[in-house]
């Protein structure tokens, strides 16, 4: 590892993993596998507990702002662990000079999102630092939720078996490109909105339908490719993805061609990967498609008995190659 921290170590890819392993998780005594939420038991109930900090630049982007992102992101981390999100805390680090009007808009959207998701923001903290010591506003949110009996396996994927299908609830890459476009340094307008949304109701409708879900994960930093690589290592099985089935909106595809990005590595803020029994997959897709947040849901691949810990992509032209974990940085500060 370098002597000083590099941007690549915040990308969510291989470098982030090494940083967490070598500096944090061992010393804190955190148990493997590290998942979106920690599961802790309290008085006979299983709780999911998670935290996340938001440093998105700029604060406002098409489809959302840092506040909406901070609430939805933490709700989603709880929901994909199989929990019903209940309570959030929030902490603000504010740079001297931030317009109060901006702060009010941000707080307003946090309250709106929490209400829609039936989650309560119950405690918080505020710090103000001198001009130039942070970039306008950073927000941290933490949250807890109760995991119903029978869903404890979801975050670790220990019931995944070969033949299980991979499902996503819609098109990939919109959030990262919407934020990139809002930075205004591309000299053209990007017709893409962030997919930022709380997914707890959508996820609940799938779980309550009684279909067999063996794993869920939101596809944030590092994108689908990073999540699949983490999963392949975690369960020590192979994963097959059919690129042609992965939903990507045309403007996102076009921009990726131009800018040299791969949508499979781009961050999303309203997308979740489900791993489900093959008999239930089509039924789950139908449930997802009946919700506006899952309108373009698709089955995109499956778990393989061979190719342990590797992700194989059938490319759009029918070739096959490895889909590796992201190396280095793709776009910093998108969440």
């Amino acid at each position: 590892m370098n002597d000083v921290i590099t941007l690549g170590q915040g990308s969510g890819g291989r470098l982030t993993h090494r940083l967490i392993e070598e500096v944090f998780s061992k010393r804190f005594g955190m148990s493997e596998p590290l998942t979106d939420s920690a599961l802790v038991s309290a008085r006979g109930e299983m709780l999911a507990f998670t935290t996340d900090s938001y440093v998105v630049d700029p604060l406002f982007f098409p489809g959302g702002n840092i506040g909406k992102l901070a609430v939805c992101g933490t709700i989603n981390d709880l929901a994909v662990s199989g929990a019903v999100p209940g309570f959030l805390s929030t902490a603000f680090i504010i740079e001297e000079g931030l317009p109060v009007a901006d702060l009010k808009i941000i707080v307003e959207s946090m309250a709106d999102e929490a209400e829609k998701a039936h989650v309560k923001i119950v405690t918080g903290d505020t710090k103000v630092v001198e001009r130039g010591k942070c970039d306008k506003l950073f927000i941290n949110t933490s949250g807890t939720g109760i995991i119903k009996p029978g869903y404890e396996h979801i975050s670790t994927g220990k019931r995944i078996k070969p033949g299980d299908k991979l499902i996503v609830n819609g098109s990939l890459g919109n959030h990262a490109l919407a934020v990139l476009g809002a930075r205004n340094n591309l000299n053209f307008r990007i017709p893409v909105e962030s997919d930022c949304a709380a997914l707890n109701h959508l996820i609940a409708s799938v779980l309550e339908s009684g279909n067999e879900i063996s794993f869920m994960r939101d596809l944030t930093r590092g994108g689908l490719a990073t999540v699949l690589n983490e999963l392949a290592v975690m369960i020590n099985m192979g994963i097959f993805v059919n690129e042609s089935s992965v939903p990507v909106d045309d403007p996102v595809r076009g921009l990726c061609e131009m800018l040299g990005f791969d949508p499979l590595y781009l961050a999303n803020e309203g997308k979740v990967l489900f791993v489900a029994g093959s008999d239930d997959a089509q039924h789950i897709v139908e449930i997802l498609r009946s919700d506006p947040l899952g309108r373009s849901a698709e089955v995109i691949g499956e778990i393989l008995p061979e190719m342990r810990a590797r992700v194989v992509l059938k490319t759009s032209i029918g070739g096959e190659r490895i889909l590796d974990m992201l190396s280095g940085t793709q776009i910093p500060r998108i969440c």
Partner: peptide, 9 residues
């Protein structure tokens, strides 16, 4: 060539 998996074809 590699991104599209052309060697495999």
């Amino acid at each position: 060539i590699h991104r599209f998996g052309i060697p495999s074809l």
